[in-house]
């Protein structure tokens, strides 16, 4: 049901064109004023409409954490978030975390600890890890529990936990 290719409106209520809404968001310090489908998830707006494809779509059901973004510093699963509900929100995606020249300390730690293989889950792992660090985890066990919303099919968990622990000073 792509709103841009919807045929002419029909009388049947079920085939009304997708209602559209206007919303503003600040992402990585830049302001976006957009119009989107009322049904769009935050994930789909970020990826498909704004082209910030560092945020990944995995399960699209809130289970895998690949779509993790920060809203005012707190991590959420953007696939479970209706974009319309986040108008005026201040977001951070992986594009707003470090650069190739100036890595975020957690990104650097991921490299040191070999905390990835295919890399698909890594943006979500990094954002989730940054949010977890702000919650001051006090043990490896708390890191494992705190990162349970991020799955890694390559099984890089030991490296991920070690990288977060290093930045946490554990």
């Amino acid at each position: 049901m792509n709103p841009d290719t919807t045929a002419l409106p029909l009388a049947d209520e079920k085939h009304l064109p997708m209602p559209r809404i206007a919303l503003s968001m600040t992402i990585n310090g830049a302001r976006y004023d957009i119009e989107t489908a009322s049904t769009a998830t935050l994930l789909d707006v970020i990826r498909d409409q704004l082209g910030l494809t560092g945020t990944k779509k995995g399960c699209d059901m809130g289970g895998c954490g690949a779509c993790t973004v920060l809203v005012e510093g707190r991590r959420i699963a953007s696939c479970l978030a209706l974009a319309a509900s986040f108008s005026d929100a201040v977001l951070t995606t992986i594009e707003g975390i470090g650069t190739a020249d100036r890595l975020h300390p957690l990104q650097a730690a991921f490299i040191r600890h070999d905390a990835l293989q295919c890399g698909y889950c890594t943006p979500g792992q990094i954002l989730s890890g940054i949010a977890l660090l702000s919650e001051n985890p006090r043990s490896f066990e708390e890191i494992r529990e705190g990162m349970s919303g991020n799955l890694c099919r390559c099984g890089a968990y030991p490296g991920i936990v070690a990288a977060i622990a290093e930045v946490a000073g554990l």
Partner: peptide
Amino acid sequence: SASGQVRNL
């Protein structure tokens, strides 16, 4: 009850 990402929503 859920992951941090879900508990924040």
